[in-house]
């Protein structure tokens, strides 16, 4: 933590946070101070704490699967009233549907082989029509044999076509040198043609 002219600054290490890396990679991170964010794969809360800073009048629903990580996250959630910790599998959003409601942003960093599907399931349930999905894809947790480039291509295609809702990718960029073989993505729910008319 730093103090400059009476203002408190926190250090945000892009190598420890995918979102931090995305900021440095010139993603326009669509977080406002009243945003409500569904954060999937909260781990011990390194990034969640920064999101919580930004959405000072909003909320972060922090979903994490591992009880061990959640234990650390709870310390943070105890102090910060805008973090709602949820111990659950992000692949089963129906289990926390009664808690979450609608959100402006879904941030997902779960390092799972079925990341695209998890994103779609959660977006279908919770993401507002005009909301954003931010995603960090880890090539090695999806397929260890294919090249990262190929994996990314497949995953993008999945996001665009395979599930409901289908996404429109606004920006995709690798997060190297902060995170090797990770792709950062920002997407919106694609409005289907007949709905547009």
């Amino acid at each position: 933590m730093l103090f400059l002219e009476g203002i408190e600054y926190r250090i945000w290490d892009p190598r420890r946070s995918k979102l931090g890396a995305m900021v440095l990679k010139k993603f326009e991170v669509p977080l406002r101070k009243d945003s409500r964010v569904l954060y999937l794969g909260a781990a011990t809360g390194t990034t969640v704490s920064h999101v919580s800073d930004i959405v000072s009048e909003g909320a972060v629903y922090a979903v994490e699967f591992s009880a061990r990580s959640m234990r650390n996250l709870l310390g943070l959630a105890d102090r910060r009233k805008n973090i709602h910790p949820i111990l659950a599998d992000a692949g089963r959003p129906e289990r926390y549907a009664h808690l979450v409601g609608a959100v402006d942003v879904i941030f997902q960093d779960v390092a799972q082989p079925n990341q695209a599907e998890i994103a779609a399931k959660n977006a279908a349930r919770f993401l507002k029509k005009e909301g954003f999905l931010l995603l960090s894809l880890k090539a090695r947790s999806i397929d260890t044999t294919a090249s990262p480039k190929q994996v990314f291509k497949n995953e993008v295609k999945k996001l665009e076509e395979a599930f409901e809702p289908k996404f429109e990718i606004l920006k995709a960029r690798e997060l190297a040198p902060f995170h090797e073989d990770h792709l950062g993505l920002i997407a919106k729910i694609r409005v289907s043609e007949n709905e547009k008319i």
Binding site: M70, N82, H84, P85
Partner: peptide, 23 residues
């Protein structure tokens, strides 16, 4: 928000202590 916060915190604490202690 504050009631929801209390609920989620309480629930997660219960889940964590249960899961961690048995495992």
């Amino acid at each position: 928000d504050s009631l929801l916060h209390e609920l989620t915190l309480r629930k997660a604490k219960l889940q964590v202590s249960k899961a961690l202690s048995v495992d």
